[in-house]
Design a protein around this nucleic acid. Sequence first.
DNA 1: TTTGAAATCGGTTGACG
DNA 2: CGTCAACCGATTTCAAA
Lengths: 164, 164
Amino acid sequence: MFQFATKTMRQKNKPITIDGIDKKILRKLMADARTPILEIGRHVGISGAAIHQRLKKLEKSGLISASRCIINPRILGYTTLAFVGIHLDKSMRSPEAVKLLKRIPEIIECHYTTGNFSIFTKVLCKNNEHLMHLLNDSILSISGVTSTETFISLDQQIDRQIKI
Amino acid sequence: MFQFATKTMRQKNKPITIDGIDKKILRKLMADARTPILEIGRHVGISGAAIHQRLKKLEKSGLISASRCIINPRILGYTTLAFVGIHLDKSMRSPEAVKLLKRIPEIIECHYTTGNFSIFTKVLCKNNEHLMHLLNDSILSISGVTSTETFISLDQQIDRQIKI
DNA sequence: TTTGAAATCGGTTGACG
DNA sequence: CGTCAACCGATTTCAAA
């Protein structure tokens, strides 16, 4: 099976230009990472060997950065998705805070941001009570975190990658 | 090759309990969706056929919802990631706005949220100038959108799925 | 870049413990 | 749930166009 290189295996990225065939390959694999190379080949009208080579090129360029199976958190009882903006005391060094945030499994994204917050996170909880404990017991207990603002996702209407 | 079922093929989700072997399978596939079933089998110490059966179970449960290859937008020149909160006029029906937002390819996430915004989005742009045009020409030009607030991601420190 | 062929390996199924 | 065996299809490599 064609397998994408891991980070440590990967060489320095090469500049790349992608054509229509590359786009078709990417679209197929963005929809289903396990689409067989031969099936892609039949779809775009060239041989599997050619798809294989193009895939190696796309991978070396860094454009394909990973392939993941996507877990539906609802099935595990995680039904609350929220965004949490974090205000840090100006005496607090952000990297320290982020180091501690990385240990909190409910935090699935964390960004340094411009605007009203020092740090902006996306979190996944079982329910609102779980979210409350996450805020009070985990996030607000980090020294330097002065306050948070929470935006609970009531319904996600769009979830997609960059358009190819 | 093992391929995950598409949405239309999938049956109604069944309740599920997952054990340690299931967790190992999931972790492998979350890291690389193209890991061969036989390799997973060698890793956890059971046959490929058994892994195959478990995978079908995990898929039917809905826990594995997709498998995607992940594109690195930077390679295509998209270097600006931002969160944009949107305020809607109370006369505007949100579904209308969302319908229009879906047509904007730079918007990769869109949520109805609690808190200060009607709608909260995640957007991907080539640079700050592109972001400015997205805000002024695309988002703010939607009728009912009264104002936006932008949080540009300066650096993403965490990006992961739910912990299994 | 693409191809076809050859060799190797993986996915899938069914019968059975 | 698990194995094994058998079949079929996919991946990978390479010489050649």
